[in-house]
Design a protein around this nucleic acid. Structure first.
Lengths: 345, 345
DNA sequence: TTGTAAGCGTTATCAT
DNA sequence: ATGATAACGCTTACAA
């Protein structure tokens, strides 16, 4: 007789029950609520589990209890460091709990997001974490009917679907540009890539600050829909220089771009911060390492990830210690690239 | 009466069946094997699904069919760009298939890997992708009994658990160092962080090359167990300089470190490649952007991710077009930091 | 092409 | 503290 590739006839609760000489439900209890079972049974069950190599069937658990430990996480990119850091925070907090992260990569597509949301919902997840606040109407209604806690992360805005944690990108960008103005820069450019709604709001913040200072000039805005990269920062800056050779500072919507601008400046022997000020966004580790170090906006990505999990776990336990909408803020880290007197490093 | 928070009484196959005026199994068929069902039924089912907003219950599917679409992926870090790129490749290839990625973060811990492996196995995954070839004995036997295709990625070595895709880190490092020797550097240092077994093999490759050239000197080896970073590259190089101010080239086990070394060299006005050659490892995008651009070892991370999925999907379908052990190789990209005559960029 | 019946492995419910 | 029984929602036989 041929055997199917996957036979092995997995060990079930019943097998363990037989070996421990108790009923299946008792084994189930011994495993989930040991305190509800006698010391003796607990020991026999443990021994049987060990001996038989019993592994619970999650599908059966989920079906019978109609609850899972799945925490659905939807992010727009797996290679963007911003989201790696958020993910890191999420995994930190999930560590040691009953939750399992199920990751979905929307690739910055609203349609892909809807598709993934449907897949996730079919698993009746324990909770859902989605990036940003620009979901499509369809996605919003899917989320609203999800029957589980939902956290929108990275930004805060009006009308949360459920809970929300992040900060105002517009204000953060404005603060960064106010810093450039305060440092005496006057022809301040905006360099931005992948102009999604979030990036757009950073541009709005730039405009806010420059208009307030009477310095706004649209010819100083250099953007592209292409995804952000180091090389692109250099290219955008090169473009900008050809149009506006008099530019004296650059606010980049991303540290990658800022580093790229710095390299391009080095190539052209443009001194930073003397002839050019540079400010990035996110406080990636590299910004502390460059020469000169880069001024940037500190964003609390790990905190966002960690607290998103806390909010969900708390809500599920009925003891969420956090507000439903949490603004984690940001800070402008003034470093050498905008004129801070720099020590050895 | 109180209602439980999660009621809503989800729409099931039976509801759809009633609405479409057919039996449950027919709906199931219409959904999974539309060609096995009449045009008319197909339409009615589709309409009912749409109208009722039916979402299949994956747990029930998995339980009834004893197979899932879960592709378990175990990586040691979510923030390390090497693995982000592999993941990107995996998601590319998974896109549009029935598979769902379930990600596990081992944080470079063998114990954590075992723990995650047990969790994954309890879901009877369709396939498993694990990083590296240095699993513990326990993990190896768990994998061997997994009853599903398993691919070890990033490295190749003897005794694959099942399938394998990667390249020889030792040979890659040797080739990079041979390049440095060929370029005329003589006091070539090794800078390495997080000295895990894989990194250790890169060090072995360095030793191979330098010994072959009669240039090996252990005082030129600078390593640390700390995780790799830009800042750390600078710090390790600073240390190295204090011991061996005559060093004339650095092979870094990682591009992050190499970039950090470059920044430190800039800070100290050490000219690259004139007074110092620098070679990295991985070909991260930044290495093409720095000034001067960085010589590095090109590794095919996305290819590895994509093909790992292909191997699993192929094996499951009984048509795996790839060998069980696949060496994707590497290339040394000679750039400006080791003396290549560089153009404008 | 469609339907019937019997599980899949677990947990909820109600007894004992 | 422990157990019997009936779900949970779906799919795999096998029939018709």
């Amino acid at each position: 007789m041929m055997r199917k590739p996957q036979d092995h006839k997995a060990v079930t609760l019943l097998d363990v029950a037989a070996a421990a000489d108790v009923s299946a439900i008792t084994v189930s209890r011994a495993l989930r609520k040991p305190e509800k079972v006698s010391e003796d049974v607990r020991r026999r069950v443990a021994a049987a589990v060990e001996k038989l190599g019993y592994v619970p069937n999650l599908a059966a658990q989920a079906l019978a209890s109609s609850r899972t430990n799945v925490l659905g996480v939807l992010i727009p990119s797996v290679t963007n460091n911003v989201f790696s850091d958020v993910l890191h925070g999420i995994y930190q907090e999930v560590q040691g709990t009953r939750f399992q992260v199920q990751l979905g990569n929307t690739r910055y597509s609203a349609l892909e997001e809807e598709k993934l949301l449907r897949i996730f919902l079919s698993q009746r997840p324990a909770g859902l974490i989605v990036s940003g606040i620009d979901q499509s109407d369809v996605s919003r209604s899917l989320l609203a009917e999800a029957n589980c806690p939902v956290v929108q992360i990275m930004e805060i805005g009006p009308e949360p679907v459920d809970m929300m944690i992040g900060f105002s990108h517009r204000e953060a960008a404005r603060a960064a540009c106010e810093h450039l103005v305060a440092r005496g820069y006057r022809r301040i450019a905006f360099v931005g890539a992948r102009m999604d709604p979030r990036t757009q709001r950073r541009l709005d913040g730039y405009v806010d600050a420059l208009e307030a200072a009477g310095l706004f000039d649209e010819t100083l805005v250099a953007t592209t829909p292409q995804p952000s990269s180091f090389t692109l920062g250099g290219a955008l800056f090169a473009d900008l220089l050809s149009r506006r050779p008099d530019v004296d500072a650059v606010f980049c919507n991303n540290d990658d771009l800022a580093v790229g601008v710095l390299f391009e400046a080095q190539r052209r022997r443009i001194t930073v911060p003397g002839r050019l000020g540079i400010c990035g966004f996110n406080d990636f580790e590299i910004t502390r390492s460059t020469f000169p170090s880069l001024t940037t906006v500190v964003t609390h990505r790990e905190t966002i990830g960690r607290n998103a999990v806390t909010m969900i776990a708390g809500t599920l336990a009925g003891t969420n210690p956090l507000p439903r909408v949490l603004d984690v803020g940001y800070e402008v880290a003034a470093r050498a690239s905008t004129g801070e007197v720099s020590g050895r490093r």
